[in-house]
Design a protein around this nucleic acid. Structure first.
Lengths: 98, 98
DNA sequence: ACCTTTGTTCGGTAATTAACGAACAACTAT
DNA sequence: ATAGTTGTTCGTTAATTACCGAACAAAGGT
């Protein structure tokens, strides 16, 4: 049992950063942060990846808490998870010491 | 030959984010951004990981361009890479739309 | 010269990540 | 009831990541 040196904040920001650590996911996040929502079908068309791959990236972002999906049958509408997005913003801001 | 949808900025920020995607590396970055420099020996003592593992994490950060090492024999002094650090700051700021 | 300190590299293992196409599930619309 | 749309899951493959201890390399001090 040793002293834990890593802070909760460091772990949280690392978790968010990890989710942001892929160009495709950055593309999605940037899109969502600009226009708040989109359908994953739109992404499939724009992005040069298989739909199964896209599905995985969306899951990544969802698991990290940065986005959320809402069923609008037969589609799914994705939006930023406002609460966590703001937390991430604050963590990054603080880290970048503004 | 299809249209490239990913921007240079998205790729760059993803690269930086990926390097930040581990708690240990966040710890190191936060330390360096606060006090500008440190010796890796200090880190070895504080952090609960093998020195070989630490060496790898430092290499990650170096390869991403976020830090740089200067030999001060027999130690190595690590500092943030100011130029790239500022680029990263700007990219994140812009992305977080401040 | 020799020992110590410091950090990298090597070899190995285990887990995770990224990607694809095919198959499947859920729901809509006809 | 059937066909189409949409997205997830599965199985597979390849590459990368994380971690360790041991071995190695470089430099400093004695």
């Amino acid at each position: 049992m040793y002293k834990e040196v890593l802070t909760v904040k460091q772990k949280k920001i690392a978790r968010y950063a990890k989710a942001m650590g892929h160009p495709i996911r950055m593309y999605i996040l940037e899109l969502l942060s600009k226009q708040s929502c989109c359908y994953s079908g739109d992404l499939t068309e724009e992005l040069p990846i298989a739909k199964s791959t896209l599905s995985q990236h969306l899951k990544e972002l969802k698991d990290a808490g940065l986005i959320q999906g809402e069923i609008e049958a037969p589609k799914i509408k994705y939006c930023v998870n406002k609460e966590n997005w703001e937390e991430a913003q604050n963590l990054f801001r603080e880290f970048l010491k503004l």
